[in-house]
């Protein structure tokens, strides 16, 4: 088996990924938990580690008229201190983990980890974010909800790396993130909802919802969201039971150590209502 690898550039990383199979590690806050073993022993990883946290090519934040682009290794802490980052994403990040983890955990890592309860992923989906994926001889862009394919599964191939996240540079009239967890810090969500709405003259022009911890991945549906487009905010507010009915098939949670399916379903429905109550 080849050893762990500490590359000096992104190019070197991609060349090496083409040659050998690695487990990519950025901040390490997920990888070291997932593969943890006894104290004073090394994590039991399946593949040698490819260290990328130090690569400056993955630490950029830029903005143009079309989108905000965030390098995969930008930490939550850096996102919180950047003027480029949309408020709703900051509101989400402040609910993730604790300062010690936010100082080192990365946005790319949260996406690659593909947890069905990933808070930042909910908000990125609601903001229509795209993931940019690179290998030494290819570059592709995928919608984040398509990039994540199931519990802890993504479309990332062994020779690829998440390069960046692109968020469309558009203002939202309402953009909210609601999280329900067992503790205010360091809690994995029992249920979460990211919701974004735009309206012109009281008529909905954009409506996006993404639910965490209610299915095998963060759940979203462009077709259900699309049913809200063109309605007036008034119509939305007086047809809440019908809207909840429309979203219901999307919300299929399970019982686990954090919560029950019944509780999660009820709370997810209540969160939709909470968002509708908030808009005007």
């Amino acid at each position: 088996m080849v050893g762990h690898y500490y590359p000096s550039s992104l190019e070197e990383t991609l060349i090496e990924l083409k040659k050998n199979r690695y487990q990519i590690i950025a901040g390490g806050t997920d990888v070291l938990v997932q593969y943890r073993s006894w104290s004073e022993t090394v994590p039991k990883v399946k593949y040698p580690l490819m260290f990328i946290h130090h690569l400056s090519e993955l630490k950029f934040m830029t903005e143009n008229v079309d989108y905000i682009e965030i390098g995969a290794c930008v930490t939550y802490k850096d996102l919180l201190s950047s003027p480029l980052i949309p408020k709703v994403l900051k509101d989400t990040i402040i609910e993730i983990a604790s300062p010690g983890i936010r100082h080192t955990a990365t946005l790319g890592g949260n996406i690659a980890n593909a947890s069905p309860a990933a808070d930042a992923v909910c908000t990125l989906i609601a903001l229509d974010a795209m993931v940019v994926i690179k290998s030494i001889d290819s570059i592709r862009t995928e919608k984040i909800e398509d990039f994540i394919t199931g519990v802890k599964k993504t479309s990332l191939k062994p020779d690829e790396i998440i390069y960046s996240v692109k968020i469309p540079n558009v203002m939202s009239d309402y953009a909210c993130f609601y999280k329900v967890g067992g503790r205010q810090a360091d809690a994995i969500s029992k249920v979460s909802l990211a919701a974004v709405m735009n309206a012109t003259d009281g008529r909905i022009t954009k409506w996006r919802m993404a639910f965490g911890a209610v299915g095998p991945k963060v759940m979203t549906s462009l077709s259900i969201d699309g049913m809200m487009i063109g309605k007036t905010i008034e119509e939305i507010k007086i047809t809440i039971p019908a809207i909840l009915e429309q979203y219901s098939p999307l919300i299929n949670p399970i019982d686990d150590q954090r919560s029950t399916a019944k509780y999660r379903k009820l709370v997810a429905m209540n969160l939709i209502q909470k968002f509708i109550d908030a808009i005007s």
């Binding site: 500490y6 590690i25 901040g27 938990v33 580690l49 946290h53």
Partner: peptide
């Protein structure tokens, strides 16, 4: 949660 490689 920090692999020591990250403190280089």
């Amino acid at each position: 949660l920090v692999p020591v490689g990250n403190v280089h």
